[in-house]
Simulated scan of single mutants.
Amino acid sequence: MTSGTAELFWFKSSYSGSQGDDCVEIAIAERAVHVRDSKDVARPAFAVGHEGWGRFVRFASER
């Protein structure tokens, strides 16, 4: 699910700093959430289904 990511709207979390530190960007599409390294956008992104993304966010927010 990494093809066709150029037309996606990518954004970083509001918790990300403006210093260009280690961050990821996400793009929410109809069938998946795409994730990429914000410092190296030429590298391939990966995608995860909405259900899997929701489980990850719930897990991370509990920490």
Rank of each mutant, 00 (worst) to 15 (best):
T2R: 13
S14N: 06
D40L: 03
T5P: 03
G52V: 00
A6M: 04
A32N: 11
A6W: 04
D21T: 12
L8V: 01
G17S: 07
V48A: 11
A42T: 14
S3W: 04
A6Y: 05
E25Y: 12
W53Y: 07
D21Y: 06
R31N: 15
Y15M: 09
S13V: 04
V35C: 02
K12W: 01
S61V: 02
A45L: 05
F56C: 02
Q19A: 15
R63P: 05
S3Y: 04
I28H: 14
V57C: 08
T2K: 09
Q19S: 13
D21H: 10
G4M: 01
W10M: 09
H34V: 03
A45T: 02
P44L: 10
G20T: 10
G4K: 07
M1C: 02
R63N: 14
R36L: 01
A45S: 11
S14E: 03
A45E: 02
G4S: 06
A47Y: 04
V33C: 05
A27Q: 03
A32H: 09
R36C: 01
T5S: 11
D21V: 06
K12T: 11
S14Q: 09
D37H: 08
R43H: 07
S18A: 15
R55D: 06
S3H: 03
E62W: 09
R36P: 07
V41S: 13
S38L: 05
F46T: 12
M1F: 09
E51R: 15
V41N: 03
G20W: 08
S38T: 00
D37L: 04
E51V: 12
E62D: 14
F56P: 01
R58W: 04
R31H: 09
D37Y: 05
L8H: 00
F11C: 11
V57T: 14
V57D: 10
G52Y: 01
G20L: 02
T5R: 09
S38E: 00
I26C: 09
D21F: 07
A6F: 06
S14P: 12
R31Q: 12
A6K: 10
S14G: 14
S14H: 13
G20C: 03
R55K: 14
M1H: 12
R43L: 11
I26L: 13
E25H: 11
F59N: 05
S13K: 08
I26P: 01
S18P: 12
L8E: 01
A42N: 14
F59Q: 13
G17L: 01
I28R: 13
M1N: 12
K12D: 02
Y15S: 07
K12Y: 00
F9A: 15
Y15T: 06
A47Q: 09
D40P: 01
F11W: 11
S61T: 08
G17T: 08
G17M: 05
E30Y: 05
D40W: 00
D40T: 10
